[in-house]
Nucleic acid binder design. Sequence first.
DNA 1: GTAGGGTTAG
Length: 650
Amino acid sequence: MNINKRVEEGLVSLLGKCNSTTLKTTKQIHAHLYVTGLHTNPFFFGKLLLHCASSISDHALHYSLRLFQHFPNPDTFMYNTLIRSLSHSSTPLTSLQPFIQLLRHPTLFPDSFSFAFALKGIANYGHLNKSGIQLHSQAFRHGFDSHIFVGTTLISMYAECGCYESATKVFEEMPEPNVVAWNAVVTASFRCGDVEGAWGVFQRMPIRNLTSWNVMLAGYVKASELGLARRVFSQMTMRDDVSWSTMIVGFSQGGSFDEAFGFFRELRREGIRPSEVSLTGVLSACAQAGAFEFGKILHGFMEKAGFLCIVSVNNALIDTYSKCGNVDMAKSVFQNMSAAKCVVSWTSMIAALAMHGRGDEAIQVFYEMEESGVRPDGVTFISLLYACSHSGLVQQGCDLFSKMTNLYGIEPAAEHYGCMVDLYGRAARLQEAYEFICQMPIPPNAIIWRTLLGTCSLHGNIELAELVKARLAEMDPNNSSDHVLLSNVYAVAGKWKDVAGIRRTMIEHSMKKTPGWSMIEIDKVIYRFVAGEKPNEVTEEAHDKLREIMLRLRTEEGYAPQVRSVLHDIEEEEKEDSVSKHSEKLAAAFGLAKLPKGRILRIVKNLRVCGDCHTVMKLISKVYQVEIIVRDRSRFHSFKNGFCSCRDYW
DNA sequence: GTAGGGTTAG
């Protein structure tokens, strides 16, 4: 008993040291058990397996699977632990391996837990295949299909795999469905796109607790039905942190930052203590909105309230600071984390450096990540390739791409191919970019072709641009940005007839262009400027200031708006409007008028910054001795003393 | 000693 106590303490201390599991810590724990002779003790071995379930890389998990194969006489409980761990892993189908072993075992039998965990494995995999159906029939054979927990998991499994009818059938055949089963069916309806059906089921429910309402909120939010979510939310007599988090995250992801902030303020007004989930939700709204000051306030609050020991909170802070233009603060959060860095932390840091054009540093952080023993995943490589393409590191990008597939065995997704096309294209190696697409093992999607078209526009390659546009016309004929990109290529070459032709086509097909907007935060209030909006007090003030700025730039720096720059505009803001009305210029002018001298102007734009605006920002930073940080759709530009951090490579 | 439905960061 004493020994057990000591071992348990040892385990607890090991677990405490590593709230992220690696192969190394797993081996340490196993060694610890071995030395004390407890490696064959089912209780402690079970603890080890559970520990592996929280593994940040699957190395530890597969190692524990090997240990399990040599474990003498495991019982059903131990099988269940392993099945559960594997069902949560990035390879959830591997959970079927021990399940099948258990089925074939001469003396042991699977119980309701075994079935529930194995079904969860299929649900997490997301495809039914034969295995899902076989599992269902095995559950039937063993008499567990009418078990309420197994039944509910069956509903979820079918829903996750897109089999709405089977999900409903399981529910209808349930002898006594409880509220959890009802909730699962509501989720299944949403999951399969039947928003009205979900409401119908919700109306028919005999009992509705708080979770049922939260299910409705989550469903509406995922279906982008924010108005309906708000209506349900207002009808709720009880709300918990999940309800609030759902609203905050939902509105934030829908681009309604003000509303997201509003829900958070309301939560605070009601005296509710926010959880790390609602906090990361607001932080992500700050990140998207570029609300630097608000982000800092939240950071201070979280520090005082003791949230900084939670890894997700740190990750959200890294992302918020970097997307608000302060990569050094992101770095400081990253370096001072008390929580162990997981793959998201490393990737966020790499992405932060990438966005700010610090490609070499991003690669350096990646090497440190490799040394730390945290395994990179597909997203890590997207950030890395993005870092390379935005810093012109073509060779490094190619090397990393092959490392990803050859060393890490990560199957490249469309996004990775897209990054490679961008990498070659930006570096003016358009032919290689085109050949790369032609050699892809998966069919290139419209986004990949569009990436190539974008780089053709950047480098003025008409021939290739026309070829690519023809492909795009087959796949996505009414995409306005493709037309704009091609017209930019023509404009740069002075082919005005072709420009006019494209314009006509766009009008004929009534294609809507994405309106450009820019935001700037002043005294914690976010001001949004939209190109071509009706004048109001704020825009009048911005226009006045802008006129003054332009005059100074003309007289002191000899600035003249270039026609070429007008046409270089990647995505529309009405061209017949003069470039001086571009929203980022208005935001900068307004910031210059309102913010105290010496304060950095932080601007967020939804589209890519245009060439003329880029020049103007450089000049303003010189003439007014002000630092301007612009986040556009794809990266950051930090203007200082007449230069931009992107070194005009964008 | 293990579960099922709702919210989290790249």
